[in-house]
Structure formats: structure tokens, C-alpha cells
């Protein structure tokens, strides 16, 4: 197996996730796209770990999974708070700071 086939698969997933973050309006769907991005990074880490016969990549992949769990928890809490205040999860409506 080539190293590049895993890296290019991860690149495709990463760009799909970036497209989702840019183009989706629903807050939950944006969080799902962020999961795609984090997952593609995990594939990269594990592929390099196999390539270099080193354990560090797998350890960092586990750390990324833990951080992703924390991120989803806080992110969904924020989406719920937005929904309670605005009665919608459309992030185009959340423009209080005129960003």
C-alpha cells in the first residue's frame, strides 16, 4: 500500500468537511462537518504512525478523539443555547455581533 493513498483520502475528507463548514446553515450540520475534518486528521496521524513504525501517531489520534468528544459536547451545548434564545439553529440568523 502506498502512503499517499491514505493521505489523499484524508485530504478529500478534509476538503469535504471544509465545504460543509462554509456552506451549511444548520448548526448541528456544521458540527458534523467539523467531525469530518477531525477524522481526516486521525487517518493522517495513523498512516504516518504505520509509515514510521512509531507509536506516537496512534497516541495523538487517541488524543484527537478525546478532544473531538469534548468539542462536540460544548458545541451542542452552544447550539442548544442558541436554539433556546432564537428558536432556530440557523447560524445566519445569529448575527448579534455583525460578523
Amino acid at each position: 500500500m502506498l502512503l499517499n493513498q491514505f493521505l489523499i483520502l484524508a485530504a478529500i475528507l478534509f476538503c469535504t468537511g471544509v465545504y460543509g463548514v462554509i456552506s451549511r446553515r444548520n448548526g448541528v450540520l456544521v458540527l458534523m462537518s467539523i467531525e469530518l475534518i477531525l477524522n481526516s486528521v486521525n487517518i493522517n496521524l495513523v498512516a504516518f504512525s504505520a509509515m514510521n513504525d512509531s507509536i506516537s501517531g496512534q497516541v495523538f489520534a487517541l488524543f484527537v478523539i478525546a478532544v473531538a468528544a469534548a468539542e462536540v459536547g460544548v458545541g451542542l451545548a452552544i447550539v442548544l443555547a442558541i436554539f433556546r434564545n432564537y428558536r432556530t439553529v440557523d447560524i445566519d440568523e445569529v448575527d448579534l455581533m455583525k460578523g
Binding site: S23, V28, L29, V72, L76, V79, R87, D90
Partner: peptide
């Protein structure tokens, strides 16, 4: 967790909302 988020934030006008921005 995502499924719970979807259930809790289901907007009242379901089916009619657009999920993709115009500048996709």
C-alpha cells in the same frame, strides 16, 4: 449526541427550511 441535538433543536417549520447557504 448528534441525534439528541437534532431532536432537541427540531425547528417548528420542518421540511421547508434550507440547509445550504446561497453562496455554496
Amino acid at each position: 449526541l448528534f441525534l439528541f441535538g437534532i431532536m432537541l433543536t427540531r425547528a417548528p417549520m420542518q421540511g421547508t427550511e434550507k440547509f445550504t447557504r446561497d453562496n455554496w
